[in-house]
Simulated scan of single mutants.
Amino acid sequence: MTAGPTASAPGYAAGRPRRGLRKGAVIGIVAGAAALVLLVVAGGIGWSVGSDSHSADRPVQAFLQDVEGGRLTDALDAAGIDRDDDDVLLTDAAYAQANDKITAHRITSVDQGDDRATVHALLTQAGRSVPATFELERTGTDWGVFPVWELQPPSLGSVEVVVQGPTDSTVRVAGAEATTGDLGAVALRAFPGSYEVSSEGGKWFAADASTAAVRGFGTPGTPVVLATTLTDAGQQAATKAVDSWVDGCVAAQTATPDGCSFYAYGENPANTYTNQKWTLDARPSVGVGDWSSRGWLVETRAPGSATFTAEFTGPNGRGTATAGPIDVNASGWITGFGDDGATFVPAVANGQTDSGS
């Protein structure tokens, strides 16, 4: 009897025969795995790009790029910096006239917390590296994941000008005008740069132009002092004002002219004095110098002289009283100018430094 084939013989398998995977199924599995890998990679790239685009330094970069490009209005809006009528330098036109502005920047570090962030940068200004710090606050999220940062208004520097001249003097900075206050000074907020500064004194006085430098953000500027000098017209008006004051004192019909540098004394209280009169024998010679704390200083170079006469009646009869010659000084200050010329304020009054007769 011949034995039949066994279960272990070649070409046979126990139970249900096994069938190989179809080619299409294999391709599908491979494609699915590749798609999963691509999805993971794309997700990683998307997260990286999203995180980078929502980094706290991005608003700072945009702000500084606007400043470097001279787009001051855009920079102000981006940083939420409010302006008022006194901020005459916070305009595109004024900033266009500034020199030594920021030309580049580099972010050095970003300290990013949950709700607040601090960005440190180095600014390139006039060939120097100037450090700057910016603060940001988180205002929300994009897609519920990435933080949205808002740049807080940075502190600005300032152009500070002191005019050695009258209060309410006109100051011109980078083509914009401002007016000094009671202390003869004005401070104007400004972006980094150097600004040409001058003072407008009309026909009466002038000041040499100077330059005010603003380094970086939040750094107070060094005050620029503009020393004024009188023009020829100012000198003539000052001399005329002094002469008018002297003439007013001489015209007073009293032995002690009010607010004047000379007087007469020795009157007898028992007498009655009439026809009191001063006569100017010589006018004082004065010089007008630099501005001091109260005005342009007027110094008496050579005193003048005046004589006093008066008629009197009394217990001893009638007579004529005389005094002099008495020194006439005219030191003081020219405090300002108006439509009528200069204003003179005397330094001495009623003989505080003079002796009467």
Score class of each variant (00 low, 15 high):
59 P>F: 12
2 T>F: 12
57 D>A: 09
290 D>E: 15
61 Q>C: 03
97 Q>N: 09
194 S>G: 09
2 T>A: 15
210 S>C: 03
144 G>Y: 08
128 R>C: 00
245 W>S: 01
154 P>S: 10
84 D>N: 14
246 V>A: 04
287 G>R: 12
341 G>A: 01
74 D>E: 09
104 A>N: 15
320 T>S: 14
52 D>H: 15
274 T>M: 06
252 A>P: 08
124 T>K: 14
3 A>Y: 09
14 A>S: 11
152 Q>H: 07
32 G>R: 08
103 T>L: 05
235 Q>F: 01
311 E>A: 04
110 V>F: 04
63 F>M: 12
257 P>Y: 12
57 D>H: 14
328 V>K: 10
297 L>V: 13
220 P>I: 07
8 S>D: 08
246 V>W: 07
143 W>P: 02
157 G>V: 06
354 D>W: 08
283 R>V: 00
46 G>P: 03
289 G>Q: 05
339 D>V: 14
150 E>G: 08
185 A>H: 01
179 T>W: 11
277 K>R: 15
281 D>K: 11
186 V>P: 10
130 V>T: 06
237 A>L: 03
24 G>V: 15
223 P>K: 14
242 V>K: 03
320 T>W: 08
201 G>W: 05
52 D>T: 15
356 G>F: 00
106 R>L: 05
212 A>E: 04
147 P>I: 06
341 G>N: 06
330 A>R: 07
16 R>Q: 10
8 S>W: 13
332 G>M: 05
248 G>Y: 02
184 G>P: 13
71 R>M: 01
298 V>Q: 05
183 L>I: 11
70 G>T: 09
110 V>W: 01
351 G>W: 12
305 S>D: 14
21 L>I: 12
319 G>A: 07
171 V>M: 09
175 G>H: 03
139 T>Y: 01
21 L>R: 15
202 G>T: 11
291 W>Y: 15
102 I>Q: 07
87 D>T: 02
94 A>C: 05
309 T>E: 12
282 A>C: 03
110 V>T: 14
305 S>N: 07
21 L>C: 04
136 L>D: 02
209 A>D: 03
350 N>C: 06
85 D>F: 13
251 A>F: 06
3 A>R: 15
276 Q>F: 00
